[in-house]
Design a binder for these strands. Structure first.
Lengths: 258, 258
DNA sequence: GCTGGGAGAGGCTTA
DNA sequence: TAAGCCTTTCCCAGC
């Protein structure tokens, strides 16, 4: 494909709010929060109507260079080849320059899509489910809903144990590391200061690193391991010190019946 | 495009290790760590030779559904349309099902690309540069190299001030939040315990949130703002309480002369 | 609508 | 392999 018609195709795609796909041999330069250069090779360039700009190599999941929605995309023909540029001023001045020496394809597509993803089994749900049935974590735990909760940077779940003590429960869907512990410690400290009473800290996750567990227990907080059975599959019942969240499956089924 | 030839094109792309792009109206189901469903709409599907599988909508930077390298991709024709499936067993069983009702395009590309990204201006570099000249942060600061440094979760830079006190310096290339402060506090605490001496904590970044600054100063630690001039551009010299890292530009230039 | 702030999720690197 | 750490993020709340 020759450069002039390619450039025309790209411009016209941009104007018509189409998604544009360009494949060819190019080099890429980036300048913004950092600076980078990618020498020549075959790449897939995706330009979306919202300004999203993605440069993909033949492998790896992530784009090697990209720019999010809002970028201003322009193209021109230079002595070196076809130059496609994505520029953004907003959070910071950033420019990606893609210079094609050779083109395999340029194509534009009108895309109609008003759908949103329906997601089941997210951490939020897990948190909700636990709120509904905290007994799996500890007998007698009662969830409480306070204004302080779910505010900005606050704990996942707030509860009172059977002795009436406040319990801050931090839920992690994945491995808990030192971060999770310090975060929880912060919540506990802050809350106990605000309420003027003793506050327990509880960390719930499928796994915890050794260091994190040590630090957690050093600070008098507790860890509850849970098995997070994803999807509709019914796992073999397990025994041990881990709480199994079975409610999730029910909830998923309910959500599935939309 | 009709389904049989589309399917043939996809299969042949997979076999020949080509990158394959499919555009059309489809719905998407995912089952794995969570479960999701995306109802019908026009999407861009990218299948890379390494198994990477990306479903993009017409806007947003990230793929709405994806699977990383190693996925096993298959296709078949069903009564509902052309079904393309990406499946992975490794860390966990995950399946993405894309069912096309209508196709706008199917294309495959042989891609040759051996290049790697050259990146300048990473946090690591910044840290190295600061190590070389800590005076920009505070007069008389001397870097020290101990075994404890750069180990697992340890401080960016360790130094002694002109009075001989240990200083832990945490460098953030971007905004510093509460995380950065608690992390630094952890380093300080741990180190002072290990060394049995007073340790100062210093946080260096281009910006800090109000809460973070308050917490930092509450704990007797200090903040040093710095201007991080990215790229080769020469900014107007600034005055104020901020340290300006000019060495970076030199370093970048050096790196640029590969 | 924009900005600030906090927190999440995945990949990367090193021990 | 495991842990820590980083990010060219994202989302929510407040202005």
């Amino acid at each position: 494909m020759d450069f002039p018609s390619a450039q025309k195709a790209i411009q016209s795609a941009l104007v018509q709010n189409k998604l544009c796909v360009v494949v060819g041999n190019c080099q890429v330069k980036y300048q913004g929060r950092a600076a980078s250069k990618l020498s020549e090779g075959d790449r897939l360039l995706v330009i979306k109507p919202d300004g999203t700009f993605l440069v993909h190599q033949k492998s790896k999941m992530n784009a090697i260079n990209y720019q999010g929605p809002g970028a201003c995309v322009t193209s021109e023909i230079t002595p070196e080849g076809l130059r496609v540029k994505a520029e953004r001023q907003k959070p910071m001045h950033e420019v990606i320059d893609v210079i094609f020496r050779e083109l395999q394809a340029v194509q534009a597509f009108a895309m109609q899509d008003d759908s949103n993803l329906l997601l089941f089994g997210s951490e939020r749900e897990l948190s909700d489910l636990l709120s509904e049935d905290l007994d799996v974590l500890e007998k007698g735990l009662r969830p409480i809903q306070l204004e302080s909760q779910s505010n900005k940077g606050f704990a996942d779940i707030l509860a009172r144990d059977k002795k009436g003590r406040l319990v801050v429960i931090e839920v992690k869907r994945r491995d808990a590391g030192l971060d999770a512990v310090t975060q929880l410690a912060r919540y506990v400290k802050e809350l106990s200061k605000r309420k003027g009473e003793t506050v327990r800290g509880m960390l719930v996750s499928p796994h915890i690193t050794d260091n994190a567990r040590a630090m957690l227990e050093n600070q008098g907080m507790q860890y509850v391991k849970f098995d997070y059975e994803v999807g509709f599959a019914t796992g073999t019942p397990k025994t041990g010190d881990s709480a199994k969240i079975t409610g999730l499956q029910k909830k998923q089924k309910r959500l599935g019946e939309y």
